[in-house]
Structure formats: structure tokens, C-alpha cells
Amino acid sequence: PTPPYLKWAESLHSLLDDQEGIQLFRGFLRQEGCGDQLDFWFACSGFRKSSQEKRPKLAKAIYRKYIQDSNGIVSRQIKPATKSFIRDCVVRLHLDPAMFQQAQTEIQSTMEENTYPLFLKSDSYLEYT
């Protein structure tokens, strides 16, 4: 069978589907000051699955931590229109499970184009393999 670390190089999704891969990628992102990218990505997935009772508090928490501060790494990588959309949803309590979908896609593209290829060339990954 293919060893997990070779699968990680196939696609970002293969990497994010493996606990050990996530751990290594997260360590790399933290070194680069981009750890929030990954946490935000998982928070968006978790939000979709969250219960209706938790959604209002959770939407606010995600908004405050990653989007409100325009200097934050996640906030800088999301389009202004997407940020206003989320802000509107939070303010009006229009809490659709998919309200972070677009932002998640944008962060995912950033990882795919930028931090994920860097990770595959990084010492952390090469040492692991």
C-alpha cells in the first residue's frame, strides 16, 4: 500500500484527510505564521455540522477570531465582498450552515496555491519522508 506521506503529496485533501499529515502541516504553517489558515478551514467544516443551538455563538466566535481583524492572516486572504457577506449574516443572525463556504473555498485556494506546495518542499516534510 502507498505510505501516507506519499498520499499527502497527491492533493491538499489527501493531506487533510490524515491526522498525522494535519499535525505536520499545522506545525509547518505555525512556523510560517499561517496556522490560522488551517484552523479556519476546519472551523468552517465544523460549523456546517454544528447543531442549531450552537450556531449563533459559533458564528460569532469564528467571525471575531478570523475575520473581524483585517490584519489577521485569514482576513487578508478573503475577498472584501465575502467578508461583508459573513458580517451581514452574523449581524442579522442569518445563520445558514453554508455561510462560511465561500470564505473556506478562498482560504483553500490560497493553501493550494501557496502554503501547500511550500509544505511539500519544506524541511519538515522532507525530514519526515
Binding site: 491526522q19 484552523d39 476546519f42 465544523g46 455540522k49 466566535a61 471575531r64 477570531k65
Partner: peptide, 20 residues
């Protein structure tokens, strides 16, 4: 604030793949 952080952490963990 603490409980908000806990909620976020719980949400992030819930989306991670389970151990295989």
C-alpha cells in the same frame, strides 16, 4: 471569551478525521 475559544476548539476538532 474562554468559552468562546472552547467552542471554537471543539468545532475545529469535530471536523478533523478520526484516527484510522
Amino acid at each position: 471569551i474562554d468559552s468562546e475559544d472552547d467552542l471554537l476548539q471543539e468545532c475545529i476538532s469535530s471536523a478533523m478525521p478520526k484516527k484510522k
